[in-house]
C-alpha cells in the first residue's frame, strides 16, 4: 500500500462511496500525511454538501406531459408536414397561382415558348415593336422571380429532409 494508491481512492472514501480495506485502514493509522489528507477531503465534501438543489416543481410532470403530447401529435415528416411550414405554404400558394395563371394563359394561347424564351402576346402588340419587347421583358422578369421562389422551395425541402 503506497500513499499514491490510497490517495487516488480518497474522493470516493470521503464521499462515502467506498470504504477502506483493512490494509488501507492500517496505512491511515500510521501515515499522518495520508490521514490528514483524507480529513481535508472529508471537510471539503461536507462543505460541498451545503449546495442544495431544489426539488422538481409541482408543474414538472404537467409540462413534460404537454411537451410529450406535442411530440406525439406532431406529424411525421411526410408530405402533410409540408403545409405546416409557413415559408413552404406561401411558396405553395405562389406555385398554385402560377399554375392557374399558366392554365388560363394557355387557354388564351397567350404564352408561346420559343428557344427557352417566353414571348408575351396576350395584348395585340406587333412582334418586334417596342411594346412587345417591354411586354417580353416584363413576363421574363416575373418568370425569373418565380424561378427564384422555386429555388427557395428546393432548399427548404432539403432542409426538411435532412434536419
Amino acid at each position: 500500500m503506497t500513499c499514491k494508491q490510497i490517495r487516488e481512492k480518497m474522493p470516493d472514501v470521503a464521499a462515502g462511496l467506498a470504504g477502506t480495506t483493512s490494509e488501507e485502514t492500517r496505512h491511515l493509522a500510521t501515515c499522518a500525511s495520508c490521514a490528514g489528507e483524507l480529513e481535508e477531503f472529508r471537510r471539503t465534501m461536507a462543505l460541498l454538501d451545503e449546495w442544495q438543489a431544489p426539488e422538481p416543481s409541482p408543474y414538472f410532470d404537467i409540462r413534460l406531459q404537454a411537451r410529450l403530447r406535442e411530440e406525439i401529435s406532431r406529424p411525421q415528416a411526410g408530405w402533410l408536414a409540408w403545409f405546416r411550414h409557413p415559408v413552404l405554404a406561401s411558396a405553395f400558394t405562389v406555385l398554385m397561382g402560377l399554375g392557374i395563371a399558366l392554365f388560363v394563359a394557355d387557354h388564351h394561347g397567350a404564352f408561346t415558348t420559343q428557344d427557352d424564351s417566353i414571348v408575351a402576346a396576350d395584348i395585340q402588340a406587333q412582334p418586334g415593336t417596342a411594346v412587345s419587347d417591354l411586354q417580353t421583358l416584363e413576363k421574363n422578369h416575373d418568370m425569373l422571380a418565380d424561378f427564384d421562389l422555386l429555388d427557395d422551395l428546393q432548399v427548404q425541402n432539403n432542409v426538411t429532409a435532412n434536419p
Binding site: W51, A53, E55, P56, S57, R63, L64
Partner: peptide
Amino acid sequence: RRPLVSFMYRMARNSAVAEDLAQEVFLRVY
C-alpha cells in the same frame, strides 16, 4: 426526474432552466 433536475440545476445553476433541460432529456429518451 429528481436526480436529473438536481444534476441540471448544478450544471446550469438555474432551477427553471434545469427543469426545462431535464424534460428535454426525457423527450430525447422517448
